[in-house]
Design a protein around this nucleic acid. Structure first.
Length: 111
DNA sequence: AAGATGACGATTG
DNA sequence: CCAATCGCCATCT
């Protein structure tokens, strides 16, 4: 396991750039990094980001707005709680106003 | 070295 | 509309 500063670091950058009360999807990050088809790697990067406490991984969900990664947190509820704490409504592990709180890095560039 | 796995996504049936 | 499958690519066993 060596410090691969390329793909992972960029993922961390984007995730850290996610505004408060906003979320994004793996595919959006992957696309932003130019690896739209490597959305899996984004998730894997998040797994590696476990050593990066400054990475709000709870703000990253799949394209359905589903908290698929909740099982990888300290507790399965940590993710949902963290999101609700930011004002994001979550029900059945799914973000209700996902399309409202959704934050796309590509869109942010043009914003 | 080869096969299986995975915090996904899109397409096909 | 729901279920199943393929693709993609790095990591793990």
């Amino acid at each position: 396991m060596k410090t691969d500063f390329t793909f992972f670091e960029q993922v961390y950058e984007v995730v850290k750039l996610i505004p408060f009360g906003r979320v994004t999807s793996y595919g959006a990050i992957a696309k932003y990094l130019g690896a739209a088809k490597s959305s899996r790697m984004v998730g894997w990067a998040m797994n590696a980001a476990c050593n990066h406490p400054e990475i709000p991984a709870h703000r990253v969900v799949n394209r359905n707005g589903l908290l698929t990664g909740k099982a990888h947190f300290e507790t399965p509820f940590a993710m949902q709680i963290a999101l609700e704490k930011e004002g994001i409504l979550v029900e059945n592990d799914q973000i209700k106003n996902f399309k409202i709180v959704f934050w796309d890095p590509n869109e942010n560039l043009n914003f």
